[in-house]
Design a binder for these strands. Structure first.
Lengths: 124, 124
DNA sequence: ATATTATAGACTGTATTTGTCTTTAATTAT
DNA sequence: ATAATTAAAGACAAATACAGTCTATAATAT
């Protein structure tokens, strides 16, 4: 079990947006060179961030991407959830009301709570 | 990112061992029927638990598997680590001393600390 | 010796992750 | 209107990880 690379990219992308806050739209090509990944792959990650309402996109000339929320309102968890989804890390299909699952979910919650508190802005 | 099924099996297996503590060795076949998985697959999981020193195995007639540690000394984390390994969930190869990685590891630590406190014995 | 038990390793199928490539849709400038 | 620019969507492919099977080997007790 590991976080995906896409999550790492997404966090770095969001950190970059937070740094650039207020500036013009960032478009795909420059972002891709800055992040050192292919434009098409980056595009898929950005689309996920758009769907999660963390950034917004506008097509056409002078279009691109920009923050959709205040930089003080974007937690690590928001970004992670946008990429990894919101399902629990552990699920037991053997028992229902499984005691093991209960503990595993409580444990996950400790991590999640921390990631909800921690803002991208905290580390830029 | 999800925990593997093997981890779920391992946790249930260890819970069963803790319940049966003091009784005779459990051998593969009965364990497999009880857990409802194939003996060969179960065997691979058990071998990982043996290597992690959570259980011990003895071959031959009347052999099988039994706990190696006191039931009050086996945490959820011990079992999870035996299956999932001990690497961090998040690693950033882009930056060294990455601030994002720092936060992600602190977050993981919250979960891990909880799982280290919580014993299998607590839920049997 | 033989039966019984675990261990190891090769192997297969499936799912997930990490990408690429091509087409389509939306917007702006002329 | 049209052309240029930009993002979105979806099909595809390669690589990795996961889940599971099968067979052969090693260790132990009787």
């Amino acid at each position: 079990m590991k976080y995906t690379k896409a999550t790492n990219y997404a966090l770095h992308i969001m950190a970059y947006f937070v740094k650039q806050e207020g500036k013009d739209n960032l478009s795909l090509q420059p972002l891709a060179s800055h992040m050192n990944i292919s434009p098409t792959y980056l595009s898929k990650i950005l689309t996920q961030l758009v769907k999660a309402n963390l950034i917004q996109s506008t097509p056409g000339v002078n279009g691109g991407y920009s923050l959709r929320k205040l930089k003080t309102e974007i937690s690590f968890y928001d970004v992670i959830q946008a990429i990894e989804g919101s399902g629990a890390l552990f699920t037991c299909e053997m028992d229902h009301a499984c005691h093991i699952e209960r503990v595993m979910r409580d444990a996950e919650e400790k991590m999640v709570n921390y990631l909800k508190e921690k803002l991208i802005y905290d580390i830029v």
